[in-house]
């Protein structure tokens, strides 16, 4: 059945008319115009549809839009503040952590959420926690130092 859901997307209250069977991925992209959320497998394997839902990175291709009623969603478009790139975005640019870029928003939000939670994260933990998102261009070796560099900023803002 059709219903109206309300969510906060990147800090803004948004309202959408959705059917019960619609996926959060499709509502974000097609009804709310949030195109940074990509998809490449549609079954939870590639992680490109990742977004931060109430503080946690999740895969939106396996979540119903109606399940997200009342929740807060952050995507790559919403991580930067006042036109300035966030530390993780800056580091990705500096270290060349993008190739084709199709997976980049998913890595940005996933890395952002794990750094927010634990800026002291080790190299092995970064590798493990980001293994749910696939970069076929194989840009992991650029992402790793970028994430480590950005973690310093997250430490700073956490201790501040």
């Amino acid at each position: 059945m059709a219903r109206v859901i309300t969510l906060t997307v990147n800090g803004r209250k948004r309202v959408a008319n959705v059917e019960d069977n619609e996926l959060l991925l499709d509502v974000l992209r097609d009804k709310l115009g949030v195109k940074s959320v990509k998809a490449a497998c549609w079954r939870g394997e590639c992680g490109l549809c990742s977004a931060i839902l109430d503080g946690k990175a999740v895969k939106t291709c396996l979540i119903l839009a109606v399940e997200a009623e009342g929740s807060e969603i952050t995507t790559a478009e919403g991580i930067s503040e006042d036109d300035k790139l966030s530390p993780i975005q800056n580091a990705f640019v500096e270290y060349g952590a993008t190739q084709c870029g199709f997976c980049t928003p998913a890595f940005i939000v996933s890395a952002h959420s794990i750094l927010q939670k634990n800026p002291e994260i080790t190299e092995d933990e970064i590798k493990e926690k980001l293994s749910g998102v696939i970069c076929r261009c194989g840009t992991y070796n650029q992402m790793l130092p970028a994430i480590k560099k950005a973690s310093k900023e997250y430490r700073r803002s956490k201790s501040a």
Binding site: S36, V93, F102, P105, I108
Partner: peptide, 18 residues
């Protein structure tokens, strides 16, 4: 740095998919 990387990290690069 690649010139398109700012668009890519902000999720605002437009692919055919979009």
């Amino acid at each position: 740095p690649q010139q398109d990387s700012t668009l890519k990290v902000t999720g605002t690069a437009t692919y055919t998919f979009d």
